[in-house]
Design a protein around this nucleic acid. Structure first.
Lengths: 344, 344
DNA sequence: CCTTTGATCCAAACCGCTTTGAATATTGGA
DNA sequence: TCCAATATTCAAAGCGGTTTGGATCAAAGG
C-alpha cells in the first residue's frame, strides 16, 4: 500500500538490478523464468505500478491519442461526437492508450495541434468533422503527427487514413425510396453544408432527383446545425407553402424529431400524410430500433466508427511504414413507421 | 521548425545554463529582465516548447484531470455527460490542464482509479453520477486522489467537494406549479432512481403532493434510462388508463419529447389537454429557449456545472489544505408552451 | 578599503523508467 | 581440461525537464 513504490525500491527489495526487474515486467526474453516469476509476485504484492510520465519520457511515446475540439464545433455535433468518442475510447483503453481531449477556442485549433506535437502530448490525433476546404491534414503532416480522419478530406483521399460513411450513396438510396413511393416534392433538411458529410448527402439527394428528371427545389432545402427546432421550424414553414413537400429527408434523428413535431402541429400524420427519412447514427439514448423503428432511416453506428478509427490510428502508429488505409462504410436503409406512399 | 528543440540545445544557443533558461521561461524572479527577454525571443524563434512528459516527471504533477466512465454508464447520461465534459474541458485548457477520459468496462472502474493514482496519470478526478450507496469517494480518499463530485453523495456531503443542483427543490416547485394549475393526476417519468439526482427529484415530487394531502400513485411513476421511447411508451400506456394523468413531470428533455409524441399520437394537444414539465439541462443541440420555450421546465446548465466542477477541483489541487467546498445550485422554473390549467 | 548584501547565473542532483554495452555464470564441444 | 557460445544479470547512460546549493560580481554600507 503506502504511497506508491518505485522501480528502484522494488529492485532493492528483490536484490536485483533495475534493468532486470524492468525487463522481467516488460516481458523481455533475457530473464530467467524463475526470476520473472519472483519479480512479478513481489511487484504486485507491493502494488508496484510504473510511473507513466517516467515511462513516457524514457520511451519517447506518450501512449495517448489527442482529440482537439473547438468550442463551437461541438455544438453542432454534440451527441454524435460523444458517441464516436465513446467508441474510440473503448479501443484506446483496450490497448493501454489514454484519450486526451482538448476543448479550445476556435482560433486556437492550430496552436493546439502544434502543442500536441512539440510537447509530445499525444502520439496521434483524430480529425473530426472535415470541411470542404480542409487544411488540418496539411498541418499535421508538416508536424509529423499521425492522424486518422473521421469523414474524409476531398482531394486527399489517397494520401490520408480515414473512415467514412458512404453519405452520398445513402442519401441517394433514401431519395430513391421516396421517389419510388411516389413522392416528388421532397424537402432536404441537411447539416451545415460546408461540412463534407453534409455536402455529400446533398449531392446524393440531387443525383437521385436528377436521375428521374427532377430538379431539387431550393425552397425545399435547408442547411444548419442539426437541432430539434431546426427540424420543426423549417418543416412548419414548408408545410405552409401552397405547394408543400410530401416527404422530408433529414440528416439527423434530432432534427427528424422536430419535423415529426411540426407534422403533428400541422394536424397531419407522419407516415401517412407526410413521409420522413432520417439518417440515424444509432445513438444510444435515441434508439430507433424495435421491430418497426419509429423512423425510416439510413443507419450507421457512429460508435462503431469511433472504434474503427481508433484501430486505424493505433495501427498507423505501430507501423508507420504502412501507407494510409481507409474504411468506407455502407449505411443500412431501414424501413420504419415514418414512410408511406405519397397521398394523391 | 525542424524536429523540435530541447532545453539543453536552447540554452547552448543562448550561452546560458539550463537553470537560467528554465527559470526565465517559468517566470522566476532571479533572472534579469534583459536575459528573460532574450530567452523568450530565442525560445519562440526556435519554436521551443517544453516536453510535457519530462516536465511532469520533474515536477511530479501530471497536469491532467481524469474522468473515468464505465461503458454502460454513459449510455444513460450520454448527451448530458458530454455537455458537462465540454464545460469542464474549457476550464481545464484555460488553466493548462489536460483532460483524460477513460472509457472502461464496468467492472474495471476501481482498477482504473487505482491506476490513475499509482501511475500518476492525473492529479485529480471527477466523480460522475453518484448513486445511492456510493463508495468511490472512499476509494479515492484511500488513494489520496483529489476529487469533486458532480452531484452529491448522501451522507458524505460535509467531507467531500461537490457541485449539485437542488433537484428536490426543483421538482417540488414544478409539482407545485402543476398542482396550482389544478392538476391532481400527475405522472412522474424519472431517471434511474438508484442515482442520487433521480432519487431526490422523486422526493421533491412526493413532498409537494403530500403537502396538499395527495398521495403519489405508483401506477403513474416510472424510472429508467432517459431515452425518447421511454417517454413515449410510458406516456402512451398511462394515457390509456381509465383514470389517466393530466400532467407529466419528466426528468429529461429527451424523454419529454417522447411524451409529447405520445400525446400527439393519442390525439391530444400538449399544453391544452396535457401539461408537461421537464427538467432542461440546457443542452446545446436541444435548445428550449426562445421567447416562449417549447417546454415548461426546470432549467440548469450542465455545461456551467462542468466549468464550476473543474474550478473547484483545480482549486482543491492547488490548495490541498483547504477543506472541501461545494456549490449548491438552484434551477430556474421557466414557463413554456407545454403547461396550462387542468381541463375539467 | 573591506565586508555585506542583493542580483544573477550556474553545475549538478534528481524525477523514475528504459536501454545500451559489458560482465558474470553456465553449458557444450573439441 | 580448456575455450567458445549462450544465458543471465548489471552498472551506467540517457530521456528532458526542475530545483537545490552554491558561485560570481557589482553596488552599498561602515
Amino acid at each position: 500500500m503506502s504511497k506508491g513504490i518505485n522501480l528502484k525500491e522494488l529492485s532493492r527489495q528483490l536484490g536485483l538490478s533495475q534493468t532486470t526487474v524492468s525487463r522481467a515486467l516488460n516481458g523481455y526474453p533475457e530473464v530467467s523464468a524463475e526470476t520473472r516469476k519472483r519479480v512479478a509476485e513481489m511487484a504486485d504484492s507491493l502494488g508496484y505500478a510504473p510511473n507513466s510520465q517516467a515511462r513516457r519520457l524514457a520511451t519517447g511515446r506518450s501512449m495517448a491519442i489527442g482529440h482537439v475540439i473547438p468550442r463551437s464545433i461541438h455544438e453542432m455535433m454534440n451527441p454524435i461526437f460523444l458517441e464516436f468518442i465513446a467508441g474510440a475510447g473503448e479501443t484506446y483503453s483496450d490497448h493501454g492508450y489514454d484519450m486526451i481531449i482538448s476543448v479550445i477556442e476556435d482560433d486556437k485549433e492550430e496552436e493546439a495541434y502544434r502543442q500536441i506535437a512539440s510537447r509530445k502530448k499525444a502520439d496521434g490525433v483524430i480529425i473530426h468533422g472535415p470541411v470542404n476546404n480542409e487544411k488540418r491534414h496539411k498541418l499535421l503532416k508538416e508536424l509529423g503527427l499521425p492522424f486518422v480522419v473521421h469523414g474524409r478530406i476531398p482531394g486527399a483521399e489517397a494520401e490520408t487514413s480515414w473512415i467514412d460513411l458512404k453519405n452520398q450513396r445513402a442519401f441517394e438510396r433514401a431519395t430513391n425510396l421516396l421517389l419510388d413511393l411516389g413522392h416528388t416534392r421532397i424537402a432536404l433538411l441537411n447539416g451545415l453544408e460546408h461540412m463534407d458529410f453534409a455536402y455529400r448527402r446533398r449531392a446524393g439527394f440531387e443525383a437521385a432527383l436528377s436521375e428521374r428528371g427532377l430538379l431539387a427545389d431550393p425552397a425545399l432545402m435547408r442547411s444548419a446545425d442539426m437541432t430539434e427546432p431546426f427540424g420543426c421550424d423549417n418543416a412548419l414553414e414548408m408545410l405552409g407553402y401552397s405547394d408543400p413537400p410530401t416527404a422530408f429527408l433529414v440528416s439527423s434523428m434530432i432534427s427528424a424529431i422536430g419535423v415529426a413535431r411540426a407534422v403533428g402541429q400541422a394536424g397531419l400524420k407522419t407516415g401517412r400524410d407526410i413521409s420522413i427519412i432520417t439518417h440515424d447514427d444509432a445513438l444510444s439514448f435515441l434508439p430507433n430500433s424495435g421491430e418497426v423503428p419509429i423512423f425510416t432511416c439510413t443507419r450507421s453506428s457512429v460508435r462503431y466508427a469511433g472504434q474503427k478509427a481508433a484501430d486505424l490510428l493505433l495501427d498507423l502508429i505501430a507501423n508507420p511504414a504502412k501507407g494510409p488505409t481507409s474504411l468506407h462504410m455502407d449505411a443500412e436503409l431501414i424501413i420504419g413507421q415514418s414512410t408511406g406512399p405519397a397521398q394523391v
